[in-house]
Design a protein around this nucleic acid. Structure first.
Length: 563
RNA sequence: UGCCCGAUGGUGUAAUGGUAGCACAACUGACUCUGGAUCAGUUUGUCUAGGUUCGAAUCCUGGUCGGGCAGCCA
């Protein structure tokens, strides 16, 4: 059952599937598949497809297969197979027993191809790749038939046998379907079914030297597995007539192909080619760089599987090319983490604050709430002493109008601690930079409340200088500075955000030292962070900023309303 | 000058001949020991011209605009 069956309307795919089920087509069964080519890592665009493939199957009580579409040994590697399985599992999808490989069907595909040859619907062509292209015609002009198009069945049968036997070099001949060289859809102009490739395959080894092309293979893969609904992206819309033609010729089980628009997200790129370039040119550290929209990147960044699945459900399914605002992804993540992430205090850009009337040798522990959204999360103790760190940006010597934070003579609250009043600023005589802030505290305000009921306009986070530890943090920002890097006039690499990664050493509260890899926190007033699972060591976590908190002050300042 | 597909606020979508709704974003205000969260509210939309109809985002026709297609990639 759809989780939101009452409120949410069916998308056009579910409507079609529902109609097929109601009509008893395919015996009322629903079988889908997710068919990645194992030649790269999955990204959030695949997460959308995964959500559709597995989601539709689940909604109709059917099943979804995970199928490696490994028909091209030149591009694929076993390494990716495991990575893909891991990423799909991480997202929370379960293919059960149904893990398949297109390469396992090579034998059956050959048998089907031989039938087409016998029926006069396929022929061996001796033309070169260039000649085939030339014969194909253009978008507006019909193609020309190959001189080899009318070979006898016997000759085709024999030539194809010899192709498979390895008697011909790569590229010397292909097997083509015999359809219509004048067809208005170029995909129907005698498409290539098999090419010769003397190359070992990651699974079938040296068993084959001819490999099937996508159009020939894909429908058969679906058919063999009993898939009922073959869901794919818009790129394959023009291929559907061919998908249907092959299956009709063979008279085998014939799934229905339905296309939907692929995902695009602002401020990033999702094409395998472009992701590859970012990695190869060293602009990011690898497939799991936290700035990348790869599933591995998002995982390392700290995104939760639930937030990604939620996002994929929220964006809907249509045939319209669109660009989804990355803010929607971030919003879902914040919504989840606000409820679940324990709070902690860490100062990202520390400046020393000395409380002049607090005894130098005194220390105390104050109670801090772990998660105001979740009482069950309890409280913790945070140490306090005469010398603290606060954020440099939380002090202004000459505060603009709407700046509520610390300034000379102004009183603010230190979260869960005391009200303090700024009494002085110590500056570097040479540069004028603020070196240290001097304050006094009101002992009667322990815990943060004033007995006389007086209010302060601001509450700051802080850490005890004596107890804090130096925590490496990475502040990630969007990888590109423009919404559509793909459409950069010159090269998308020119739109890279030079500040997509800022590494800092924060001063963090002691408890954070024990953060387990993968543990997520809200650093109060700053954002959500995760202990990096690759670079953290026991007792020495490294934090990645997942997403900053909504920052109203920054917006006011940016709008120039501060003065 | 071929074939296929698409067009609803800034963005993503819903409405399946009957009040154009939701989410994000933006903006107001309230509240707040996170300028977070929460709460209340505001702004912004059916590409166009005809037609059918009591009634059209929806159906029909023409146009406009946008996307895709000429791998022995998938």
């Amino acid at each position: 059952m759809p989780p939101n069956a009452q409120s949410a309307p069916f998308d056009f795919i579910r409507e079609t599937v529902a109609a097929d089920v109601a009509a008893g087509r395919y015996g009322g069964k629903v079988v889908t598949r997710f068919p990645p080519e194992p030649n790269g890592y999955l990204h959030i665009g695949h997460a959308k497809a995964l959500g559709i493939d597995f989601g539709v199957a689940a909604d109709f009580g059917g099943r979804c297969h995970l199928r490696m579409d490994d028909t091209n040994p030149a591009r694929e590697e076993a390494e990716y197979v495991e990575a893909i399985k891991e990423d799909v599992r991480w997202l929370g999808w379960d293919w059960g027993e149904h893990l398949y490989f297109a390469s396992d069907y090579f034998g059956k595909m050959i048998e089907h191809a031989e039938r087409l040859i016998e029926d006069g619907r396929a022929y061996v062509d001796d033309l070169t790749a260039d000649q085939i292209r030339e014969h194909r015609g253009t978008l507006t002009a019909p193609g020309r038939e190959s001189p080899w198009r009318n070979r006898s069945v016997a000759e085709n049968r024999e030539l194809f046998r010899r192709m498979r036997a390895g008697e011909f070099p790569d590229g010397s001949r292909v097997l083509r379907a015999r359809i219509d060289m004048a067809h208005p859809n170029l995909n129907m102009r005698d498409p290539v079914m098999y090419r010769i490739l003397h190359m070992p395959h990651h699974r079938s080894g040296d068993a084959w030297c001819v490999y099937p092309s996508y159009d020939w293979a894909h429908g058969l893969e679906d058919s063999i597995e009993g898939v009922t609904h073959s869901l794919c992206d818009l790129d394959f819309e023009n291929h559907r007539p061919l998908y249907d033609w092959f299956l009709d010729q063979l008279g085998v089980h014939h799934p229905r192909q339905i296309e939907f628009a692929r995902l695009n997200i602002s401020y990033t790129v999702l094409s395998k080619r472009r992701l590859m370039r970012l990695i190869e040119e060293g602009r990011v550290t690898g497939w799991d760089d936290p700035r990348l929209p790869t599933l591995r990147g998002l995982r390392r960044r700290g995104y939760t599987p639930a937030s990604i699945r939620r996002f994929c459900a929220e964006i809907g399914i249509t045939k319209t090319n669109s660009l989804t605002d990355v803010a929607l992804l971030e919003h879902g993540l914040r919504e989840e983490l606000n409820l679940t992430a324990p709070r902690a205090m860490a100062v990202l850009d520390p400046v020393r604050l000395v409380i002049e009337n607090y005894p130098a040798d005194r220390e105390e522990e104050l109670d801090a709430v772990n998660n105001p959204e979740d009482p069950a999360a309890g409280t913790r103790k945070v140490p306090f002493c005469r010398e603290l760190y606060i954020e440099r940006e939380d002090f202004r010597e000459d505060p603009p109008k709407k700046f509520f934070r610390l300034a000379p003579g102004r009183e603010v609250r230190l979260r869960y601690a005391y009200l303090v009043t700024c009494t002085g600023v110590v500056k570097d005589p040479a540069t004028g930079a603020v070196r240290e802030l001097r304050c006094t505290y009101d002992p009667a305000t322990r815990g943060g409340d004033a007995p006389d009921g007086r209010k302060v306009k601001s509450t700051l986070h802080w850490v005890s200088a004596r107890h804090a530890w130096a925590a490496p943090v990475r502040l990630y920002d969007r990888l590109f500075t423009v919404e559509r890097p793909d459409e950069t006039a010159t090269d998308f690499m020119d739109a890279l955000n030079p500040a997509s990664l800022e590494e800092r050493v924060a001063q963090a509260e002691p408890g954070l030292r024990g953060a387990a890899p993968g543990a997520r926190f809200q650093f109060e007033r700053k954002g959500y962070f995760v202990a990096d699972h690759a670079d953290s060591a026991p007792g020495a976590p490294v934090f990645n900023r997942i997403v900053p908190l909504r920052d109203t002050w920054a917006r006011i300042e940016r709008a120039g309303q501060a003065d």
